[in-house]
């Protein structure tokens, strides 16, 4: 991809996409896929799920592009869609998988996130297994706050929840996580 394409402002790429130029949208995807993949990889269980979430994010962005009000950067709007898609993924995954104990998950050979080349420390493995046991809302808020280091205000903007609601949910999520860690062997 040339330097010239990098110089084109998002605004022009959006206009071109709305006029039917798919390559302009491909350029937007190339520009922001790293940010979307970065957030989604905190939630996806494997590489297939990660690809699905990210494709869903950009497909929704493409079909809702006319609704983008342009009062904030395109990246912020895209990350709001990403947050929603990650929450939706967690919700659906929880519906498919009934709540089971961490021991049962380990016995079943559960892989808590995208496979990594390096071996995780057993303590970190315990944390990821506990995170997998949280509800979708708890997992979302604790991941955005503690792992993505988003502020309460940013989380409120991303989720559409009030600042007070984010604080309450974060407090409860941390309590639930602590309890799960406490109960682990």
């Amino acid at each position: 991809m040339g330097a010239q394409e990098n110089d084109i402002p998002d605004e022009r790429l959006i206009e071109a996409t709305l006029s039917g130029d798919d390559q302009s949208f491909a350029e937007l995807a190339r520009r922001y896929k790293g940010r979307v993949f970065g957030v989604a990889s905190r939630f996806a269980q494997d590489a297939g799920d990660l690809d699905d979430i990210c494709q869903d994010v950009f497909v929704q962005a493409y079909f809702k592009l006319r609704q983008f009000r342009r009062d904030s950067p395109f990246e912020h709007w895209l990350l709001r869609i990403t947050t929603y898609k990650c929450y939706d993924y967690l919700r659906k995954k929880r519906r498919r998988t009934p709540t089971v104990s961490v021991d049962a998950l380990l016995e079943a050979g559960y892989e808590p996130s995208v496979p990594e080349p390096q071996q995780r420390h057993p303590d970190l493995e315990r944390l990821h297994l506990a995170l997998a046991q949280l509800s979708a809302k708890e997992r979302l808020v604790i991941t955005l706050l503690e792992l993505e280091e988003r502020s309460v205000q940013e989380i409120a903007d991303l989720t559409g929840w009030s600042v007070g609601n984010v604080k309450v949910r974060a407090f409860r999520a941390r309590g639930a996580l602590r309890k799960l860690m406490e109960n682990q062997p």
Binding site: F37, G38, S41, R42, A47, L50, D51, C54, S113, V114, E116, P117, R120, H121, D123, L124, L127, H128, E146, L147, E149
Partner: peptide, 14 residues
């Protein structure tokens, strides 16, 4: 949580 935060997944293959 600090350790998990520092550990970023390499998504380049996907």
């Amino acid at each position: 949580l600090g350790q998990a935060r520092a550990q970023r997944v390499d998504t380049s293959a996907v």
